[in-house]
Simulated scan of single mutants.
Amino acid sequence: MYAQEIQCPSCGAGRTIRNPGVITIVCEYCGNAVYWDQEKIANAGKQSILPEGFSRLFRGATGSLLNKRFCVLGRVRYSFGRGFWDEWFLEFESGEIGWLTEDNHEFAYEKAFPAPNVPPISKLSPGTRIAMNDKPYIIEEVGQAECLGVEGDLPIRMQSGEKYAFADGSTPDGQYTLGIEYDHDPPTVFLGRWIKYASLKLDEPGEW
């Protein structure tokens, strides 16, 4: 089983990382974010303390999603100006990882998708149609996201105050979701599907 021991460069607290995809951790003792790889560790600074989410999800929560067992490793909270949403980083028993987006009690499960030919943000607006992975999508929202805070273990470099442009959409039947984050070049694309709350089952403490 994969396990990497590191120490927080700010307070010296030890931490065991068990998922090889994790590159950002937030120290649970001092609240500093730490970027790391196999060669170096960098202190990314103090992070905002996040309040509870909309639902019963929390870092360390376990349960099942679409009948697959998972553990919540981390969370990012974003603002889009008129409100905010949470993105929960999940690890499944199989080793699969993904994101559960939670926005005003609505859930979508998404995974990163390699898409080299993503239109620039200037070409997208509500109603624009694009194709991804052989499916048509309609752009529903274009805006700017600001990170309000991070916690736990994450597979991305992110910290409070970072901003990037984004575009969200779904298939014409409303079943599948598309998220484009213009945080890198090329942008990061996430494809997924809407999840009914009944498909998300959380354990009681001690069940994992």
Rank of each mutant, 00 (worst) to 15 (best):
I25W: 13
Y137I: 05
E52R: 08
L124C: 03
G143C: 05
L66P: 13
V72H: 03
F84P: 00
A33R: 04
T16A: 09
E28R: 15
V26T: 15
Y109G: 01
H105P: 01
V118L: 11
N19D: 14
T16P: 01
F80M: 11
P116E: 05
R59M: 09
S125W: 10
G14D: 15
L124Q: 01
S94R: 07
D103P: 00
W88M: 04
R15M: 15
A112N: 08
A115E: 12
K111F: 04
G31D: 09
R69W: 07
W36H: 15
E28H: 14
R69D: 05
K46W: 02
E93D: 09
D86P: 03
P51Q: 10
A131H: 12
E110F: 00
P120T: 11
L57A: 02
Y137C: 07
I49C: 06
W36D: 09
S48F: 01
P20N: 09
V118S: 12
L100F: 09
L65V: 08
G53M: 08
Q38K: 13
G74N: 10
G14Y: 13
V72I: 13
A145N: 11
R18E: 15
F89L: 06
C30Q: 08
Y35F: 15
K40P: 00
E140K: 12
W99H: 04
I130T: 09
R18C: 15
W85L: 07
T24G: 08
E96P: 00
N43G: 00
F54M: 09
I121K: 14
T101V: 15
N133K: 06
G98D: 02
A131T: 14
R56Q: 08
T16F: 04
I139M: 05
Q144K: 14
Y137L: 06
G12K: 10
L73G: 08
G127H: 01
T16M: 06
L50E: 07
L124N: 02
P120A: 11
A44E: 11
E91H: 14
G31Q: 12
F89K: 07
S79P: 01
I139S: 03
W99N: 01
D103T: 10
E106R: 15
V26P: 08
N19R: 01
N104E: 14
I121P: 07
R75A: 09
L73Q: 13
V76K: 02
A115N: 02
E28A: 14
P20M: 12
L90I: 05
P114K: 14
K123Q: 15
G63A: 03
A131I: 10
R59L: 06
G31P: 06
G74V: 05
E52S: 10
S64D: 03
F80S: 07
G53S: 12
P136E: 06
A61K: 07
P126K: 01
K123L: 12
F92W: 06
I23Y: 09
P116S: 03
V142N: 02
Y109W: 12
R129L: 02
Y29M: 12
I17K: 03
N67L: 06
Q47F: 03
P20A: 12
I97E: 13
C27K: 13
R75S: 08
R82Y: 01
I41K: 08
N133I: 05
K68I: 04
E87H: 10
K135E: 13
A108N: 10
G81C: 03
E106A: 13
P114W: 15
